[in-house]
Amino acid sequence: MMSEIPYFAVVALIAIGLYIVMFKRNLIKLAMGIVLIETGANLFLITLAYRHGDRLSSPIFTSQIMGGDAAAYSLPTPHALTLTSIVIGVATTALLLAFFMKLYQKFQVSTIDDMRRLRG
């Protein structure tokens, strides 16, 4: 049961994030919602690294690891993928916040209801 908590957390994070993006109108909350979805996706990836119960040590060689077989390490690829996607997330969030700041400067807008000049 304990090992299944991350899976519940993944679904919960994605669900909460999507809920925020679909229901909340404040721009900053919108950005938070996107970050939550992203966290959910990253958590999912990193959970995959520890899916095999007996592979628990982190994939860094130290003298503590005995036995010398590759099967002792958790899967390294998801770690790497998560690193990549975290940086991508930082970049998109920064850009999004910059846009929101400029929108606030131009129109004094803080909710999406005022951000409706382009439609139809």
């Binding site: 060689f61 130290t62 003298s63 690891i65 036995g67 010398g68």
Partner: peptide, 12 residues
Amino acid sequence: GELIGDVAFPSN
């Protein structure tokens, strides 16, 4: 680094 069996394990 040290050898464990046939495999050389580098240390920190």
